[in-house]
Design a protein around this nucleic acid. Structure first.
Lengths: 335, 335
DNA sequence: TTGTATGCGTTATCAA
DNA sequence: TTGATAACGCATACAA
């Protein structure tokens, strides 16, 4: 591999001149420019990125941290991030954390060490004070989640309110025995959605029963297992609020298997509006987040942070939308 | 951020000694070791990774290139890669290429520049000679695909044969008008699967009709669109061979929508056995690849390459399995 | 407009 | 067992 020194020697100029040409500085004679460019071409010279990064402390790379790739909900957001990044010449790298704190620490260390210019994360299991300190020094943004009481730059919808809304929708249809399928509540996102469910019930004076709340992995299989567990325990319910579409789809699948029709026997709602939700049978009533928009907004904010600007709004709360489809059924009368 | 110099000065030793301790070299007195370690802790010293990488030309990072994150088929393979990588202390980064050659070139340049220690890719649109030259100098492996006539290290099943097998399965059930839904045939993987379909038909003397072959994005929506297009063109068929489970699921969805029952009116088969395939209604007849195993094997090979070993087998062809479920239906008699 | 020289933080060679 | 120092490839302040 040719180095800048090789080019300089070959062209009979100094490395400084070559470097200037590489960064199209104006202060260079067209003829020396041409001469050097010819040598660069001839030697097939590519600046050593590691050396350059080491020197400039910039990489042009952005890292996205996702808990599990398996959740298809992330794609459209990532796609929004990518398109905005591409416009500005940044490249996107993605890493899976599996909600593993050690792994998360490793990747945040990448940020501190300037191995990437910024981080966008869907989760953050680091200690709150660690996060706040980090965010005060390095460009990173949390997307899809809101950490109550913390001053972290993020882009999200109001998950708690959305969850309350969709639970209310079921309550308005007449349901009173509503189960909640939720992901690991250590994760604020799922805590929020669970709280929204509880809010709605409490507002109507309906008791929140622990046996109607089921924590599971947010996957199709997780939803399937949850419903089997509920049924196995003999829990009686006429509706299921799932805190993720995959959970809801797994739940429907399990209900069908045990001969209970959706929505006529049991109404089911999801959360996120993944691609499958509109195609599934029955199609899923769910909460639609403005995914593409979230990705774009997130990347824009990150670019501002990288540019050293101070954000006008730390928190971006975007609008969501209740999408009513088949799985939630019709009015069944109040009890 | 403290540097190795700070530590050396503070501990009253040279940077060489600190470096030795960092790499637990044996040639160092326990007492100086303890002294230095104490300083490292006190200053919260973390070696600068960029400097280290620049110096050693090693990063401890492996890059996985996926065409589209959207294809859930990749996860289990990635999970296999990750688990093996983790054992050996490597970290995994993922990048989406969208089958964009320029993007692919950028990431392969990362490999050349030692920004990552190795690459595992699900696709490769670079020119064949470029790929061969690359593979002779840098550690990279192609997974799930086989490039005929090229000497590239890879791990895959025999896609063509598997596709022939599943088409044959439908032929044996009595189907004669079989459509094929396929991804972009510029991509060898889909070319192989299409060829397998053609092989099976030809072996029975059944003409391969262009109007029965439909190229689409390998997504649920793509499958949906493909069937709508076929129906719109008035094409008559009793079975559909899809070169991907998402395509198959989208196809089933579209067929249902137009009032055709699967499998009684139309038999449908997929390819890959993604999680959803067993949960969908009807469950999908498909080809199961040993995904986890593929990931593990791929990473093992890559580690060998990184260690400078020469591979005993350049090509790994793993066994696949026909998974017969509901969507392919029963014997309908031969024509 | 161009060149000289220095430093980024680390590892590793050589000498002590 | 330890230390002094060169080198990795680049960018840039400063001088010319």
């Amino acid at each position: 591999m040719a180095t800048i020194q090789d080019v300089a020697k070959e062209a009979g100029v100094s490395t400084a001149t070559v470097s200037r040409i590489l960064h199209n500085s104006s202060n260079v004679l067209p003829e020396t420019r041409d001469k050097v460019m010819a040598v660069i071409e001839r030697l097939d010279y590519h600046p050593n990125r590691l050396a350059r990064q080491f020197r400039t402390q910039e990489t042009g790379n952005i890292l996205i941290l996702v808990p599990e790739l398996e959740n298809t909900f992330y794609y459209e957001i990532i796609s929004g991030i990518e398109s905005t990044a591409k416009e500005k010449g940044y490249h996107i790298l993605i890493a899976e954390t599996h909600n593993d704190v050690e792994l998360e620490e490793y990747f945040f260390e990448c940020l501190k060490q300037k191995q990437v210019d910024g981080i966008i994360t869907f989760s953050a299991r680091l200690a709150p004070d660690q996060l706040e300190q980090l965010s005060s020094q390095y460009p990173f943004i949390i997307v899809c989640r809101y950490y109550e009481g913390m001053n972290l730059p993020n882009v999200a919808i109001d998950n708690r309110k959305a969850s309350r809304d969709i639970t209310n929708y079921l309550l308005n249809l007449g349901h009173r025995r509503i189960c909640c399928l939720v992901g690991n509540t250590d994760i604020p996102l799922y805590q929020d959605r669970l709280n929204g469910y509880k809010d709605a019930l409490k507002e109507r004076g309906i008791p929140v029963l622990p046996e109607m709340i089921c924590t599971e992995r947010v996957t199709i299989q997780g939803g399937y297992d949850a419903v089997e567990r509920l049924a196995g325990a003999g829990t009686d319910f006429s509706a299921v609020v799932a805190c993720g579409d995959t959970l809801a789809i797994g739940a429907i699948r399990a209900l069908k298997n045990m001969g209970r029709k959706v929505p006529s026997d049991v109404a089911v709602t999801g959360f996120d509006d993944i691609e499958l939700s509109s195609l599934y049978n029955p199609s899923l009533t769910t909460v639609r987040q403005p995914k593409k928009q979230m990705g774009i907004r997130t990347m824009e904010k990150l670019l501002d942070l990288i540019a050293g600007k101070t954000l006008i709004h730390q928190q971006d709360i975007l609008n969501y939308e209740l999408v009513i489809r088949e799985s939630s059924g019709e009015y069944i009368g109040s009890h």
